[in-house]
Design a protein around this nucleic acid. Structure first.
Length: 302
DNA sequence: GGATGTTTAAGACTAG
DNA sequence: CTAGTCTTAAACATCC
């Protein structure tokens, strides 16, 4: 398999697994669920590599959706006509990836039936997500009168549709300078032209992560891994006030230093930036957003 | 018929 | 080396 080694992935296979890519797509939409076709679209929009050989990778992607418990199928409601179901991430799957590596999961997500607090069966998880989605829709409705686009309602009236924050969410992956093994460091900003999403966009996509400014301005961290983007101590990002235990959990302890993310740093929340990967970019440090808020570290249920 | 979804299988790869 | 993960391929079923 190709490994990151050039200064761009525009024509190369991105170093993300299909699970990661799918999770990115799902997380990128406010509803946290997407039909298959939209997942395809998301990936093709952002990763030019996947504009070719669509049969091949789409088959693989479908395989992953079905095969992995971390993805749950949510039937369309009657008012949502269309083909196929929606796909969402299992509420408990927040910690599939370990050590910040998106190349490979450390543990495979498996639903557990022993956890009384969280949905474990796919059907229950789907129901849970649907409920959360309903709340979200209400919130969004309530916010329509305001000038804000459809997402910020998260922070207003209801909890986020899901309180877990995925470590492999796209903002964790790319919202920082990227260093490739060959020593070439390339910023996410220029690489945007290659189809990679943007920080500002991410703020729109993950308002519950970015909106409160909570994770915006982390201090720079030293990334041990030569894969900078993957070495992000994402765990810490993903377990804020977490209510749902994550199933495969483990994570290494965070560095003791406490980043400045606690101080509010609204940064590029750019509500005007639609869901697009085109030129707009965050003027802020791409490397800011992702350091490890050790305080958010939580529930390492093992 | 095409898109979607499920399942099985095999080989490559990586962490422990 | 082994076990787990990832990718790819393929066959088949179901749905619109």
């Amino acid at each position: 398999m190709p490994r990151p080694g050039r200064n761009t992935y525009s024509d190369q296979k991105p170093p993300y697994s299909y699970i990661s890519l799918t999770a990115m797509a799902i997380q990128s939409c406010p509803e946290k669920m997407l039909p298959l076709s939209e997942i395809y679209k998301f990936i093709m929009d952002r990763f030019p590599y996947y504009r070719e050989n669509t049969q091949r990778w789409q088959n693989s992607l479908r395989h992953n959706l079905s095969f992995n418990d971390c993805f749950i199928k949510i039937p369309r409601r009657p008012d949502q006509p269309g083909k196929g179901s929606f796909w969402a991430l299992h509420p408990n799957c927040g910690d599939m990836f370990e050590n910040g590596s998106f190349l490979r999961r450390r543990k495979r997500f498996k639903v557990l039936t022993s956890d009384p607090l969280a949905p474990s069966k796919p059907s229950e998880a789907a129901h849970y997500l649907q409920q959360q989605h309903a709340k979200l829709r209400l919130s969004a409705l309530a916010a329509t009168g305001a000038h804000l686009p459809h997402v910020p309602a998260y922070n207003l009236t209801t909890p986020p549709p899901s309180t877990f924050k995925h470590p492999f969410a796209i903002e964790n992956i790319i919202a920082r300078d990227y260093k490739v093994p060959g020593g070439l460091a390339f910023s996410t900003m220029p690489s945007m032209s290659a189809g990679y999403p943007l920080h500002g966009q991410l703020a729109t996509a993950w308002p519950h992560v970015y909106g409160a400014g909570a994770l915006e301005s982390a201090a720079p961290i030293s990334v041990a891994s030569e894969y900078g983007a993957y070495g992000v101590p994402i765990k810490s990002l993903c377990h804020g006030a977490q209510s749902l235990p994550a199933v495969p959990v483990p994570i290494k302890p965070m560095p003791p230093h406490l980043p400045a993310f606690l101080s509010n740093s609204p940064q590029s929340l750019s509500p005007t930036s639609p869901h697009t990967a085109t030129g707009q970019s965050s003027p802020s440090n791409p490397s800011d957003a992702l350091s490890g808020p050790a305080t958010l570290q939580s529930v390492a249920v093992h």
